[in-house]
Design a binder for these strands. Structure first.
Lengths: 207, 207
DNA sequence: CTTTGGTTCATACAACCGTTTCAAACGAGC
DNA sequence: GCTCGTTTGAAACGGTTGTATGAACCAAAG
């Protein structure tokens, strides 16, 4: 086995970094292998095609984040017992894991938030299928939790409001350190997160 | 002059269509010229580089949309007279023009919404500068109007809520006919727009 | 020691990229 | 009719792309 894992994960790390910085299409396989100091053929050997590599990069992050979301949702529902969980807590279970994972420096995740936001706009059909597979069960659980807490809303209504929340979250992840005016007072990420959660919660509470 | 305009605008139309469908980087100038039935060199002759073409495609749409937003804001403020305009009307002035322009079939705009949503995630520095230039004055006017209507909110607070609104809008534009579950009841675009506006308005009204 | 199965390497491949070139075609003004 | 500036055309440029090939390498198994 030698240091297979070394090569494989060095490719994954470098690819993630470059993809999130420049976009999937502006990064060539040669850019990745050069920066990872790995042979050109290593990518095709370990992952198959470039598209397979893209999938692997996404899966490595999306799966844990969505698992963390599920776990957070579990925790929120268990804590609420028989009562319905608070709206802010449900939304927090959806929003917070992306922050946690995108800022944890121990896992080379500094750049993950941008990658994550990006994955929604890159139009590869295979990537779209992957996303759908990764998000469908989560969205279903979210819907169920929200319907319990907001029983007066129809499932369709919840769907649209989730879409808006999703958009706000991902646009924020993608641009949270871009387009900032000079006069803006800098605030912590946690404070930004709370702003987003209460913004979305208010949107969900509309009659 | 002959049919210069014909060639030029046929390139613009085709480029817009292909860019919005496949993304900026997945479309080559050969794809464009082939589909537009125009000589390969025509793009470089009329626009310079491919990046210049991208800029031209965006500008042709972004400028009118933002002008329409400005005009709508003017109308809302004039109608309110000395009083502050209603929050929903301000947000509508920002949101509605993107709908109007992305659905008007008389201007080949069927695909514009996707292009528009896409332009925020493609990381070209020149495009970013173009966007900043096109949006800064608009955002300033929006901020001013919102501060007048919501005087208890700080400018920074309004900035973040605008970012969330922006994200919800653009994610919606980008995916409004994607990832739709089978059980979802179909509704008109106007109804979706109203949902978005009241969602965002509620977020702005949080104390 | 030799074989084996997995991994790395340099190199080659065909296809495509954005851009340039320059001759041909063109309509307007004299 | 004949220039003249503008627009189109076919072809080529050098460079890069993703992928494939087959030899070299290496740890572990027999």
């Amino acid at each position: 086995m030698k240091q297979v894992k070394d090569t494989r994960s060095r490719i994954l790390d470098t690819a993630e970094e470059l993809f999130s910085e420049h976009g999937l299409d502006r990064v060539s396989i040669r850019d990745i292998t050069r920066k990872a100091r790995v042979n050109l053929a290593a990518i095709n050997y370990h992952f198959g095609t470039k598209e397979d590599l893209v999938g692997a990069v996404f899966e490595r992050r999306v799966i844990p984040v969505n698992q963390a979301r599920m776990a957070a949702l579990d925790g929120v529902e268990k804590a609420a017992g028989k009562k319905s969980p608070k709206l802010e807590e449900i939304l927090g279970a959806f929003i917070r894991p992306t922050i946690t994972y995108s800022l944890d420096p121990s896992q080379n995740n500094k750049t993950f938030s941008r990658l994550f936001g990006r994955c929604l706009t890159e139009p590869s059909p295979e990537l779209e299928a992957l996303l759908k597979k990764q998000f469908e069960p989560l969205v279903e659980r979210m819907d169920a939790a929200l319907m319990k807490t907001l029983p007066h809303l129809s499932r369709s209504e919840i769907f649209w409001r989730m879409k808006f929340t999703f958009g706000a979250l991902h646009h924020w992840l993608l641009t949270k350190d871009k387009f900032l005016p000079t006069w803006l007072e800098a605030i912590e990420v946690e404070a930004q997160t709370q702003k987003l959660i209460s913004f979305a919660a208010a949107g969900f509470r509309v009659a």
